[in-house]
Amino acid sequence: METTMLARLNHDHKHIAILLKILKVKQSRLAQGEAVNFNLIRDIVEYMQSYAEHSHHPLEDIIYSYYLKKTAQSETDDKLATQHQTLVDASASLMASLNLILSDVVISKDQLVLDLKSYVTQQEEHMRYEETEVFPLWAEVIGQTDWQEIQALCTLKLIDDPLFSDNDNVVFEELRDYITKDE
C-alpha cells in the first residue's frame, strides 16, 4: 500500500514534468517572438487545475496531516500547504491571462513570458521539495497499516488521471495527441 500511494504521487510528478517541459518550450518560443498554440498551453494549465489541484495535492495534504498526527508535530510552518495555495493562485492567474488571449484581448507578451517562466519554476521547485524532503519522511515514518488508513481517507480525492490514464476521457485529447507526437 505504501509503495502504491507514494508511487502514484511520484508517477504524477513524472507526468507533470512532461507538461512543464512543454510549457518551457512554449515559453521560450513565445519569448523569441514565435507563434505558439495558446489552446495547448491553456489545456496544460487546465489539467494542472483539474487534476493536480483537485486530486494530487489534496492527497498529499491528507498524507501530510496524517504524518503530523502520527509524529505528534504541529503545523507551525506548513510549507506544503503554502506551496499548494501559491500554485493554485499562479495557475488561476495564468489561466485568466490565457483566456483573455484566446478571447482576442491583447495582453503584454513580456508579462505572459514572465508568468509562464515563474509558473514552471514554482512547479519544479515544489516537486523537488516534495521528492527530496517530504516523500522520504513519509516513507520512513508511515507504516503499512497507516497506509491502509490513508488509502481510506483518500478515497474521495482519488480520481483517474484525465490525461495519463487509459480511460476514454476526451477532455485533453488534443494535449494527449501532442504529447504522443512529441515523444
Rank of each mutant, 00 (worst) to 15 (best):
E173G: 00
E124S: 10
Q83G: 03
L112F: 11
R42G: 04
E130Y: 01
D115W: 01
G143R: 08
I142H: 01
R176V: 10
D104T: 00
L19D: 04
V120C: 11
V105E: 14
K24D: 13
I41G: 08
A31I: 08
L114K: 14
H57Q: 10
L9Y: 05
Q32A: 15
T121W: 01
Y119G: 03
E124G: 05
F164M: 10
D104F: 12
I159R: 11
L163V: 09
D110H: 09
K24L: 10
E75P: 06
P162E: 02
L100R: 13
V25T: 15
A152K: 12
H54G: 00
A72N: 14
K157A: 12
T145D: 11
K181Y: 06
V106A: 07
A96E: 08
R128N: 06
A139M: 08
D77T: 15
I63N: 01
T155V: 12
G143L: 13
H13F: 03
Q85S: 06
L87F: 12
Y119D: 04
T121P: 00
F38Y: 14
H54Y: 10
V134M: 08
M48D: 00
Y178E: 08
V88E: 11
N39P: 00
L40Q: 12
K69V: 00
L6I: 14
M48V: 14
V170W: 00
Y64Q: 07
R8N: 09
Q122F: 14
E60Q: 12
A90Q: 12
L102R: 06
P136L: 07
K157Q: 13
L68F: 07
K79W: 02
R8P: 00
C154I: 03
R176P: 00
Q27M: 11
A139N: 10
R128P: 00
V45E: 04
A17C: 01
P58C: 08
D12M: 08
T4I: 13
D12L: 07
T3A: 12
H56G: 10
T3Q: 13
L102V: 13
T155R: 10
G143T: 11
V120K: 05
V134G: 03
Q32Y: 13
S103Y: 03
T71R: 15
Q148N: 12
V120P: 06
L163Q: 04
F135E: 05
I44F: 02
M1T: 07
Q111C: 01
G33F: 14
V134S: 03
Y47N: 03
R176D: 08
E46F: 07
H13W: 06
S28L: 07
T3C: 02
V113R: 05
Q111G: 00
D115F: 03
S91V: 08
